[in-house]
């Protein structure tokens, strides 16, 4: 199942947005919560989604976009079904994060911030996952994996296919 949704109808997007706004509230301070919920299905925020959010919250689109692009968990560019985030922080680096990243790149055949041809995986790096005692670590969507070796990282990726 490919979840890239540029073909989704605007109407459906609007309904999703209405629902999220209803759940979180219409105030501007709910913007992050709303964006977070809307990104769950697709792993990214498409233009129509941001337009609908801007409209519902009566905010300029540029402000919504400016806010979305500030936070690294949000993406305004299409991402794969699974976002793989390899931690690059110093503790993970000490534990060999560079080898993990190399193995993941080789396995997926993409560079950082790229998406595999089948739209399954987007590879990103992250500043810290907060599991520093069990590095090196990576996160796939919401799931965190620690104590990685290059082989184990690849094994885990394979389990997502």
């Amino acid at each position: 199942m490919i979840m890239l949704c540029s073909c989704r109808e605007v109407k459906i997007v609007r309904e999703d947005v209405k629902e999220a706004v209803q759940r979180c509230g219409r105030e501007k301070h709910q913007l992050l919560e709303i964006l977070g919920q809307l990104q769950k299905g697709t792993n990214f925020l498409e233009r129509d989604t941001l337009v609908a959010v801007a409209e519902e919250l009566d905010l300029p689109l540029a402000e919504v976009y400016g806010t979305a692009t500030f936070y690294s968990l949000y993406s305004t560019k299409p991402r794969g079904r699974y976002v793989v985030r390899v931690c690059e922080s110093a503790p993970c680096h000490i534990d060999g994060a560079a080898d993990i990243l190399a193995a993941v790149k080789a396995h997926l055949g993409v560079a950082v911030d790229e998406t595999t041809d089948n739209s399954q995986f987007t590879l990103e790096t992250t500043s810290c996952l907060g599991v520093c005692s069990v590095g090196p670590a990576m996160m796939i969507n919401d799931e965190v994996y620690g104590n990685l070796t290059p082989d184990r990282a690849v094994e885990i990726l394979q389990s997502y296919n």
């Binding site: 501007k28 301070h29 992050l32 919560e33 964006l35 977070g36 500030f70 690294s72 949000y74 500043s127």
Partner: peptide, 25 residues
């Protein structure tokens, strides 16, 4: 409330901006 991936939001006034639904500056 949930953050959205920005180290700087650990800075207290950045966090407040983020809570207000803005860029976490």
């Amino acid at each position: 409330r949930s953050g959205a991936g920005a180290y700087v939001c650990g800075e207290e006034t950045a966090l407040l901006n983020s809570l207000e639904g803005r860029r976490g500056e």
